[in-house]
Amino acid sequence: MATLDDLLSQIPVAQIAEQLDVDQQTAETAVRAALPTLVGGLDANAQDPAGAASLLSAVNNHSSRLVDGGVNVAEVDTADGDKIVSNVFGANKDQVISTLGGVNGGGGNDLVAKLLPILAPIVLSYIAKQLTGGGQGATTSTASTPTQGGLGDLLGGLLGSATSGSGGAGGALGDVLGSVLGGGAGGGLGGLLGGLLGGGKR
C-alpha cells in the first residue's frame, strides 16, 4: 500500500542536504514539512475535474524511472519541479513557502523555495509508479493507464496514512501534517490548500 512513509523513504535526504548546503537534520525537518504539503496541494487540485485532468496529464508525462532503484538528486529536473510547484499552488506559492519556512528547524523560506522543486518531480514519479502498476501500492495489479479516480484515491490514501500513522515516521508526519496543514488561529495551510481550487494553473 502506498503511504506517506513509503514516499518519504524514496527521498534521498542526505543528498538533498549536501545539494542545499545544510545539515541533514535541517533537511529532514524541511522534507517532513514540505512533503505532506505538496501531496495536500496535489490532492486539493485533484478535487476539481479540470485540476485532476491537468494533474493526470502531468503524471503521464513523468515516468517512474526517477524513483526506480533509488533517487539520484543530480537527475532531478528542478526547472520542471518549479513549474509543478507553481501549477499546484498558483498564486498561493509564496504563502505556502512562507508558512513552511516558519516550521521550527526547517531552514527558513530560502531553503523551502529550493526544496519544493526537488521534491515535486520525485513525488510525480512516485505517483506514476504506483498508478501504472510499478509498485506494491498500485491501484490494480494490471493497471497500465492512470485514471482520475485512481489518482484521487492514491492521493487521499497518502494523506490518510499520515494522519492515521501510529508512531515512528508515520506518527511524526502526522504531527507535521496536523500542525502545518491544520494550523490553529489561521496559521496553517489547511484553509490555504482548501482554497487552491482555481489558485493553481490548469
Rank of each mutant, 00 (worst) to 15 (best):
G160Y: 05
L124R: 09
R32F: 10
V22N: 04
A33R: 06
P121A: 00
G186N: 11
S64L: 05
P146D: 00
A53V: 01
A169W: 09
N60K: 09
A128T: 00
G105W: 02
E75D: 14
G182C: 06
T78W: 05
L159F: 10
H62C: 08
S166A: 14
I84W: 03
A143T: 00
G165Y: 02
V180F: 05
A44S: 15
A58W: 12
G157Q: 10
T29H: 04
V59Y: 01
L177V: 07
N45F: 04
G195S: 15
G190P: 14
D110M: 13
I118E: 11
T139W: 03
D43Q: 11
L151E: 01
V39E: 00
A27Q: 08
V13W: 02
A53D: 13
A33N: 04
D80E: 14
A143Q: 02
L196A: 07
S144D: 07
G160C: 10
L100C: 07
V88M: 12
D23R: 12
V76R: 03
G150Q: 04
N60R: 15
G200T: 07
A128F: 01
L119A: 02
H62G: 03
D43W: 07
V112M: 12
Q19R: 15
A52G: 10
A50K: 07
G134S: 08
A44P: 05
L155M: 00
S125L: 01
E18Q: 13
D23Q: 05
V71C: 14
G41N: 05
T3M: 11
N45C: 08
L158M: 07
N45S: 15
D175P: 03
A185S: 15
L4D: 12
V59D: 00
G101K: 12
L189F: 14
A34I: 01
E28W: 06
K83F: 08
S9P: 00
G170W: 07
G191E: 12
Q25W: 09
G167N: 03
I16G: 01
N109T: 08
G152D: 14
K114M: 07
R32S: 11
G200C: 08
A46E: 13
G200R: 09
G101E: 14
L197F: 09
M1I: 15
Q24K: 08
A113L: 09
L159C: 09
G183Q: 06
G102C: 11
L159N: 15
N109L: 10
Q10V: 10
Q15T: 09
V88I: 14
G168T: 10
S9M: 12
A120E: 08
A53G: 07
A120L: 13
G105L: 08
N109K: 15
S164P: 06
S64P: 00
V76G: 00
A120G: 08
T145I: 15
L131P: 11
S64Q: 12
D110K: 13
T147K: 02
G168E: 14
A14T: 13
G41M: 03
V112D: 10
A44I: 09
